[in-house]
Protein backbone atom coordinates (compact mmCIF):
# COMPACT_ATOMS: atom_id res chain seq x y z
CA UNK A 1 0.00 0.00 0.00
CA UNK A 2 2.71 2.48 1.00
CA UNK A 3 4.78 1.40 -2.00
CA UNK A 4 1.88 2.26 -4.33
CA UNK A 5 1.49 5.67 -2.70
CA UNK A 6 5.16 6.48 -3.27
CA UNK A 7 5.24 5.15 -6.78
CA UNK A 8 1.88 4.72 -8.59
CA UNK A 9 3.55 2.18 -10.90
CA UNK A 10 3.35 -0.23 -7.96
CA UNK A 11 -0.44 0.08 -7.93
CA UNK A 12 -0.52 -2.98 -10.18
CA UNK A 13 -0.14 -5.36 -7.23
CA UNK A 14 -3.20 -3.87 -5.52
CA UNK A 15 -5.09 -3.95 -8.80
CA UNK A 16 -4.39 -7.66 -9.34
CA UNK A 17 -5.34 -8.46 -5.76
CA UNK A 18 -8.71 -6.72 -5.75
CA UNK A 19 -9.79 -6.77 -9.42
CA UNK A 20 -12.00 -9.88 -9.17
CA UNK A 21 -13.66 -8.64 -5.98
CA UNK A 22 -14.54 -5.23 -7.39
CA UNK A 23 -15.71 -6.74 -10.66
CA UNK A 24 -17.80 -9.31 -8.81
CA UNK A 25 -19.42 -6.59 -6.70
CA UNK A 26 -20.22 -4.62 -9.86
CA UNK A 27 -21.72 -7.65 -11.59
CA UNK A 28 -24.04 -8.27 -8.65
CA UNK A 29 -25.00 -4.62 -8.51
CA UNK A 30 -25.48 -3.93 -12.20
CA UNK A 31 -26.45 -7.35 -13.50
CA UNK A 32 -24.51 -6.92 -16.71
CA UNK A 33 -20.94 -7.91 -17.51
CA UNK A 34 -20.21 -4.96 -19.78
CA UNK A 35 -21.59 -2.47 -17.29
CA UNK A 36 -19.56 -4.21 -14.59
CA UNK A 37 -16.39 -3.86 -16.66
CA UNK A 38 -16.99 -0.13 -17.10
CA UNK A 39 -17.69 0.32 -13.40
CA UNK A 40 -14.58 -1.69 -12.49
CA UNK A 41 -12.44 0.43 -14.78
CA UNK A 42 -13.77 3.67 -13.32
CA UNK A 43 -13.30 2.38 -9.78
CA UNK A 44 -9.63 1.56 -10.25
CA UNK A 45 -8.85 4.73 -12.19
CA UNK A 46 -10.51 6.78 -9.42
CA UNK A 47 -8.62 4.83 -6.76
CA UNK A 48 -5.31 5.41 -8.53
CA UNK A 49 -6.03 9.13 -8.88
CA UNK A 50 -7.01 9.42 -5.22
CA UNK A 51 -4.36 7.11 -3.79
CA UNK A 52 -2.42 9.86 -2.03
CA UNK A 53 -5.62 10.83 -0.21
CA UNK A 54 -6.17 7.33 1.17
CA UNK A 55 -5.81 7.21 4.93
CA UNK A 56 -4.91 3.87 6.51
CA UNK A 57 -7.17 3.31 9.51
CA UNK A 58 -6.06 -0.16 10.50
CA UNK A 59 -4.37 -0.19 13.92
CA UNK A 60 -1.24 -2.17 14.75
CA UNK A 61 -3.30 -4.47 16.98
CA UNK A 62 -5.42 -5.40 13.96
CA UNK A 63 -2.48 -7.41 12.61
CA UNK A 64 0.49 -6.91 10.33
CA UNK A 65 -1.44 -7.42 7.11
CA UNK A 66 -4.52 -5.47 8.21
CA UNK A 67 -5.53 -2.65 5.92
CA UNK A 68 -8.63 -0.59 5.31
CA UNK A 69 -7.72 -0.28 1.64
CA UNK A 70 -10.38 -2.82 0.57
CA UNK A 71 -13.08 -0.85 2.41
CA UNK A 72 -11.92 2.38 0.76
CA UNK A 73 -11.90 0.69 -2.65
CA UNK A 74 -15.40 -0.73 -2.18
CA UNK A 75 -16.66 2.69 -1.08
CA UNK A 76 -15.42 4.03 -4.42
CA UNK A 77 -16.99 1.07 -6.24
CA UNK A 78 -20.29 1.67 -4.47
CA UNK A 79 -20.32 5.32 -5.54
CA UNK A 80 -19.40 4.44 -9.12
CA UNK A 81 -22.14 1.81 -9.27
CA UNK A 82 -24.69 4.20 -7.75
CA UNK A 83 -23.82 6.79 -10.38
CA UNK A 84 -24.23 4.26 -13.19
CA UNK A 85 -27.56 3.12 -11.80
CA UNK A 86 -28.82 6.68 -11.63
CA UNK A 87 -27.96 7.02 -15.28
CA UNK A 88 -29.52 3.68 -16.17
CA UNK A 89 -32.65 4.36 -14.09
CA UNK A 90 -33.37 0.66 -14.28
CA UNK A 91 -31.82 -2.69 -13.69
CA UNK A 92 -31.87 -5.28 -16.44
CA UNK A 93 -34.74 -7.69 -16.08
CA UNK A 94 -32.79 -10.72 -17.23
CA UNK A 95 -31.05 -12.42 -14.33
CA UNK A 96 -27.42 -13.31 -14.56
CA UNK A 97 -26.62 -16.83 -15.49
CA UNK A 98 -25.27 -18.92 -12.71
CA UNK A 99 -21.79 -20.14 -13.47
CA UNK A 100 -22.23 -23.75 -14.44
CA UNK A 101 -19.91 -26.47 -13.34
CA UNK A 102 -19.53 -29.93 -14.81
CA UNK A 103 -21.00 -32.37 -12.29
CA UNK A 104 -19.35 -35.63 -11.47
CA UNK A 105 -21.46 -38.35 -13.22
CA UNK A 106 -21.36 -40.46 -10.06
CA UNK A 107 -22.82 -37.58 -8.14
CA UNK A 108 -25.21 -36.35 -10.78
CA UNK A 109 -28.41 -36.36 -8.75
CA UNK A 110 -26.80 -34.55 -5.87
CA UNK A 111 -25.27 -32.04 -8.27
CA UNK A 112 -28.64 -31.35 -9.85
CA UNK A 113 -30.22 -30.75 -6.44
CA UNK A 114 -27.38 -28.43 -5.40
CA UNK A 115 -27.63 -26.53 -8.64
CA UNK A 116 -31.37 -26.12 -8.27
CA UNK A 117 -30.91 -24.86 -4.72
CA UNK A 118 -28.17 -22.46 -5.81
CA UNK A 119 -30.35 -21.12 -8.61
CA UNK A 120 -33.22 -20.62 -6.17
CA UNK A 121 -30.91 -18.90 -3.66
CA UNK A 122 -29.56 -16.58 -6.32
CA UNK A 123 -33.09 -15.77 -7.48
CA UNK A 124 -34.13 -14.97 -3.92
CA UNK A 125 -31.12 -12.71 -3.37
CA UNK A 126 -31.74 -11.00 -6.68
CA UNK A 127 -35.22 -10.07 -5.49
CA UNK A 128 -33.92 -8.37 -2.34
CA UNK A 129 -33.59 -4.63 -2.66
CA UNK A 130 -31.17 -1.85 -1.77
CA UNK A 131 -28.77 -2.19 1.13
CA UNK A 132 -30.39 -5.42 2.31
CA UNK A 133 -29.34 -7.09 -0.92
CA UNK A 134 -25.95 -5.36 -0.90
CA UNK A 135 -25.24 -6.47 2.67
CA UNK A 136 -26.17 -10.09 1.92
CA UNK A 137 -23.93 -10.16 -1.17
CA UNK A 138 -20.98 -8.58 0.66
CA UNK A 139 -21.42 -11.07 3.50
CA UNK A 140 -21.84 -14.26 1.49
CA UNK A 141 -19.99 -13.62 -1.75
CA UNK A 142 -17.15 -11.43 -0.50
CA UNK A 143 -17.18 -12.96 2.97
CA UNK A 144 -16.74 -9.57 4.58
CA UNK A 145 -17.20 -9.00 8.28
CA UNK A 146 -20.11 -6.98 9.61
CA UNK A 147 -17.69 -4.19 10.51
CA UNK A 148 -16.34 -4.01 6.94
CA UNK A 149 -19.84 -3.95 5.45
CA UNK A 150 -20.89 -1.25 7.91
CA UNK A 151 -17.97 0.93 6.79
CA UNK A 152 -18.77 0.43 3.13
CA UNK A 153 -22.49 1.10 3.49
CA UNK A 154 -22.04 3.92 5.99
CA UNK A 155 -24.23 2.24 8.63
CA UNK A 156 -23.76 0.93 12.14
CA UNK A 157 -22.76 -2.69 12.68
CA UNK A 158 -26.08 -3.32 14.42
CA UNK A 159 -27.98 -2.00 11.42
CA UNK A 160 -25.97 -4.25 9.09
CA UNK A 161 -26.67 -7.30 11.27
CA UNK A 162 -30.39 -6.53 11.06
CA UNK A 163 -30.20 -6.03 7.28
CA UNK A 164 -28.54 -9.42 6.82
CA UNK A 165 -30.90 -11.12 9.23
CA UNK A 166 -33.95 -9.79 7.41
CA UNK A 167 -32.44 -10.64 4.05
CA UNK A 168 -31.73 -14.17 5.20
CA UNK A 169 -35.29 -14.54 6.52
CA UNK A 170 -36.66 -13.44 3.18
CA UNK A 171 -34.44 -15.87 1.30
CA UNK A 172 -35.36 -18.68 3.70
CA UNK A 173 -39.04 -17.93 3.13
CA UNK A 174 -38.62 -18.15 -0.62
CA UNK A 175 -36.59 -21.33 -0.48
CA UNK A 176 -39.24 -22.98 1.68
CA UNK A 177 -42.14 -21.83 -0.46
CA UNK A 178 -43.65 -24.86 -2.26
CA UNK A 179 -44.24 -22.91 -5.47
CA UNK A 180 -40.85 -21.23 -5.53
CA UNK A 181 -39.75 -19.92 -8.87
CA UNK A 182 -36.25 -21.20 -9.55
CA UNK A 183 -34.81 -18.67 -11.99
Amino acid sequence: MDAARIDPARFDALYRKYLAQVYNFAVYELGDHHEAEDATERTFLSALAGLTGFEERARPEDGLEASTFRIWLFQIARNVVAERRRRQRRRPEAPLEIASEAPDPADLEDAVVRRELATAAWGAVDRLTGDRRRAVVLRFVHEMTTAEIASILGRSEGAVRVLIHRGLRRVAGELRAPDRDPR
Binding site: L19, A20, Y23, N24, V27, Y28, H33, A36, E37, T40, L96, I98, A99, R114, L117, A118, T119, A120, A121, W122, V125, V136, V137, F140, V141, L168, R169, V171, A172, L175
Partner: peptide
Protein backbone atom coordinates in the same frame (compact mmCIF):
# COMPACT_ATOMS: atom_id res chain seq x y z
CA UNK B 1 -30.77 -20.58 3.70
CA UNK B 2 -27.36 -19.51 5.02
CA UNK B 3 -25.82 -22.76 3.79
CA UNK B 4 -27.45 -22.34 0.38
CA UNK B 5 -26.15 -18.78 0.04
CA UNK B 6 -22.66 -19.63 1.27
CA UNK B 7 -22.33 -22.48 -1.21
CA UNK B 8 -24.57 -21.35 -4.03
CA UNK B 9 -23.93 -17.72 -4.83
CA UNK B 10 -21.57 -17.62 -7.82
CA UNK B 11 -18.40 -15.55 -8.05
CA UNK B 12 -17.68 -13.83 -11.31
CA UNK B 13 -14.25 -13.16 -12.70
CA UNK B 14 -13.43 -10.69 -15.44
Amino acid sequence: AAAALAAGLPRYHP
